[in-house]
Design a protein around this nucleic acid. Structure first.
Lengths: 221, 221
DNA sequence: GGAAAGATGTGACTTTAGTCATTCCCTTTT
DNA sequence: AAAAGGGAATGACTAAAGTCACATCTTTCC
């Protein structure tokens, strides 16, 4: 690295934290100015010391790396962050990337590799394991949805419905008329009406339109 | 590059397309096997030829680079793609990244830089201009929403409504009854009914519930 | 076996939604 | 000033939604 870079390290394992700090300081053009045991400590210290790079352990008590990162983003703190971890967990990496981490480095790499990653990140690049790119594409192309059933969603609201009611709710949410629903599920018109009445009570709405609106809001469909 | 890499180039400017192809082929361990003038041509050729890397111009007629990229993702085509463009447009870069592009390279760079980017991308890395990281963080932290009015959304569907109709639509979408709407906007019950009828015709729905469903789907509210 | 609970159906009824032709009023246009 | 047009209202009507009490049948449970 060309210039002296002020660095913050947050890791609960003192061997790693102090070992890293020592090596980084010895490297000559770097300077570890903050050593924190967790995210809270890191953020407290950041208010008094400016740094150009943060090394952030993911597994920490009190406030983990991802939560810390999220907090930093909320504070509109734009210093690049390299996540440090023992585990090459895909989802961690992707979450870190989505939270705007600049890099993701495994703890078992050679110190020279870490220095290279740090140098690249300080210069504005991103350094992620190759696997992340592939996983990210998968996630983006799948546009994965949580896939929660209407029944489960309503249960979260303290409303329990049986499968027949769920079936009818789906059709009501589509804007179907009672007659059309009756034809669709082979029930009599009267029965469909009865179910509607019961559902209005359960879901605490006054009429069909309100129910449709409520369902769409709840289910984001 | 260590091994021979099969490459596809899509660019409507023949000077760039053929020039790049020639230089890449001369480089020794690369082989341009597809040369396309646009996205459609590229995708057609990909079905017959497998490649390990795609160079994709953003500005192309018939099917632009981003649309092509989107299409490739839909086809679950996972070959890394480097976007080529004359312009360092932030939004283009971010869109490209979100669509899973592996790299984004400006056309005015030195050929050696392109080769370096290609090598990194083939090995699974991402190569984006530094600015992207920052912009991406901004976008993720803002969670910016487009903020489009109902009127505009409907206009995109070829449906034009006046402000009174928009006002009523909003209330209908909330599940309000005609009487409640009438009270809310100081119109007579009959007038509200008349508006409803007119709107059902305009929005091509049969009844109130269907309208509510349609509006929620369209507006994602 | 018999009670209880749940699913479905019926009929009669009230309320709301939806349609349509027509009128009134106000503003803009010619 | 007359015509044209849009917004709002009215009344009369039909269709659909919604309520409710009650009946029927099956399954479940003690």
């Amino acid at each position: 690295m060309k210039q002296s870079v002020r660095i913050a390290i947050a890791d609960d394992q003192s061997i790693i934290r102090e070992g890293l700090a020592t090596m980084i300081n010895l490297e000559g053009n770097c300077n570890v100015v903050i050593r924190a045991q967790n995210g809270v400590e890191l953020i407290e210290n950041l208010t008094n010391n400016s740094v150009e790079l943060i090394l952030l352990d993911i597994q920490m008590p009190v406030m983990g790396g991802l939560d810390t990162l999220k907090q930093l983003r909320k504070m509109a703190y734009s210093v690049p962050v390299i996540m440090l971890t023992t585990f090459a967990d895909d989802q961690y990496m992707i979450d870190a990337m989505k939270l705007g981490a600049a890099g993701y480095v495994l703890k078992d790499i050679e110190i020279e590799e870490l220095f290279m990653a740090m140098e690249r990140v300080v210069h504005g690049h991103m350094v992620f394991p190759q696997i992340v790119q592939k996983k990210l594409i998968e996630q983006l192309s799948q546009q994965q949805k949580p896939e929660v059933t209407m029944k489960e969603q309503l249960l979260e609201q303290g409303i329990s419905i049986n499968s027949r009611e769920e079936e009818l709710l789906k059709l009501i949410a589509l804007g179907y008329s009672n007659q059309r629903i009756a034809d669709e599920v082979y029930l009599s018109l009267g029965t469909v009406k009865n179910y509607c009445s019961k559902l209005y009570g359960k879901l605490r709405v006054e009429n069909r339109a309100e129910l449709v609106s409520y369902l769409h809001q709840l289910l984001k469909i």
